[in-house]
Design a protein around this nucleic acid. Structure first.
Length: 446
RNA sequence: UCGGCGUUAGCUCAAUGGUGGAGCAUUCGGCUGUUAACCGAAGGGUUGUAGGUUCAAAUCCUACACGCCGAGCCA
């Protein structure tokens, strides 16, 4: 019989004989009836084994099976007697590939550390598999969006000689006779070179931050996607962000309904992610905080709490982001930031030198910053000043300065953290579920 | 890095300073529509580590290790 099918396609095979190759997810028995749940990577289906309808060997083999045993099952697809749009497999034959040893992850509840230690098995569970499928779909949507809009994929190096932005702590390693190399925390500077060569480019790859950040929103190794466009100003940049986010979110809800349902995702909230998104300036955001009476709380050196009205110039913390976002049901673009708080490469507002032409995109429902972008400084003299102000090694930036020496143009781009995007779309409590094998300061295995 | 909380059976959790328990998992038995199936039985423990207080410590104290949550930093 060559009727092997995938469980995700099961609805097309009602009343037909099929073969499913997979694993035993769980099994319930009721005397002369057994209900094995089968998974094959594409989905899960309940099998029905009737003792009087199968051979003695098949019946006995089924009662030997343990959770996650690998098997090939033949049977007839039928509609569930009580549930709409649910299908079952009336089992006729079983071939055991391997009887699994006692499986550590039972259908009951487990603690996060136990599961994290067994991430290589945890990803077999329905929920984790659904998240990883959505992640794959998001990546596909991103690549298609940029492909369809005239962007060229531009892969930046991962070994870099210096800190791109000079802020975060970087992982380092020995690099032959050339001293230290650092793992890239951003491909942006290289993407700028790409934009001046190819017009519109995007990078997509792993990036690394050695910050000891132990929060639900941080991992040390994550995937970042960074488009960079020549002749785009900050407003063009925001137009692109809006169009891009709408495309990705709408495509995911169109193609990933069953997965989002497994995750219990409220799709109506994602459906609202349509252009235009609210755009507010940093100053307007600070006004919102003042109106809502959300103060800045700082711990002083002697451990006392200092509470004061939010001062213009400070960066937002989690409570501030939440307050700014709560009145909107779409991603909020906060733009034109205090230059002091932002990276050296951001262009200053020609009308106000205290302002940098940057934009942060805050996801709805309190998921925080998913995108950060800006128009880049294209004036070589101003850029050199910034490099000095930030105490960065000028020599290392010579090639970057060349981009301003030879045909400098206004250009802009942004960076999107893939795992934060996955967390938002899947409504995850913790970023560690958004990537197959998360890397955190306290975890490098499995 | 700082602050709060936690660590007890394979797993998830109970246990006034006074004989360490339950559910699930495992093994055995029962059940023809179960769906974290259910019912009955059995096995399963150096209470994170080291020290201290006490007639007596899972329980109180100290240190350390590990984890979770929050803050800072950011995607």
């Amino acid at each position: 019989m060559k009727n092997r099918i995938h469980i995700s396609d099961i609805a097309n095979y009602v009343d037909q004989s099929v073969e499913i190759k997979g694993w035993l997810y769980n099994i319930r028995s009721s005397g002369k009836l057994m209900f094995p749940e089968l998974r094959d990577g594409s989905g899960i289906i309940q099998g029905v084994v009737v003792k009087s309808a199968v051979s003695e060997k098949v019946w006995e083999d089924f009662s030997k099976l343990t959770q996650e045993s690998s098997l090939i099952v033949k049977g007839t697809v039928s509609k569930h007697p009580k549930k709409e749009n649910v299908y079952e497999l009336q089992v006729s034959d079983l071939e055991i590939i391997q009887i699994a040893e006692p499986y550590p992850i039972t259908p009951k509840e487990h603690g996060i550390e136990f599961l994290a230690d067994r991430r290589h098995l945890w990803i077999r569970s329905q929920r984790q598999a659904a998240i990883l499928r959505v992640r794959s779909e998001i990546v596909q949507a991103i690549r298609e969006y940029f492909y369809n809009n005239g962007f060229t994929l531009f892969d930046p190096p991962i070994f870099t000689p210096n800190a791109c932005e000079g802020t975060s702590t970087l992982f380092s390693t020995d690099y032959f006779d050339l001293g230290k190399a650092y793992l890239s925390q951003s491909g942006q500077l290289y993407a700028e070179a790409g934009a001046l060569a190819l017009g519109k480019v995007y990078t997509f790859g792993p990036t690394f931050r050695a910050e000891n950040s132990m929060t639900r929103r941080h991992i040390t190794e994550f995937w970042m996607m960074e488009p960079e466009m020549a002749y785009y100003d900050i407003d063009d940049d925001m137009d692109l962000i809006e169009d891009f986010l709408e495309y990705v979110v709408q495509r995911v809800i169109k193609n990933m309904k069953p997965e989002l349902e497994i995750l219990g995702r409220d799709i109506s909230k994602l459906e609202k992610v349509k252009k235009p998104f609210p755009r507010i300036t940093y100053s307007e955001a600070v006004d919102i905080l003042h109106k809502k009476d959300i103060p800045l709380i700082r711990k002083t050196a002697n451990g006392e709490e200092q509470i004061r009205p939010f001062p213009w110039g400070e960066d937002f913390g989690a409570p501030h982001e939440e307050a700014i976002v709560e009145d909107f049901d779409k991603p909020v673009m906060v733009h034109r930031w205090p230059a002091e708080a932002k990276a050296f490469y951001m262009k200053r507002d020609p009308n106000d030198p205290k302002i940098a032409l940057g934009v942060d995109v805050l996801a709805p429902e309190g998921f925080g910053e998913i995108i950060g972008g800006s128009q880049r400084e294209d004036n070589i003299n101003l850029l050199m000043e910034r490099i000095k102000e930030h105490d960065l090694p000028m020599d290392e930036f010579e090639w970057y300065l060349d981009l301003r020496r030879y045909g400098s143009v206004p250009h802009s781009g942004f960076g999107m953290g893939l795992e934060r995007m996955v967390s938002w779309i899947c409504n995850l409590e913790h970023i560690r579920e958004s990537i197959p094998f998360p890397r955190r300061p306290n975890r490098i295995r499995p």
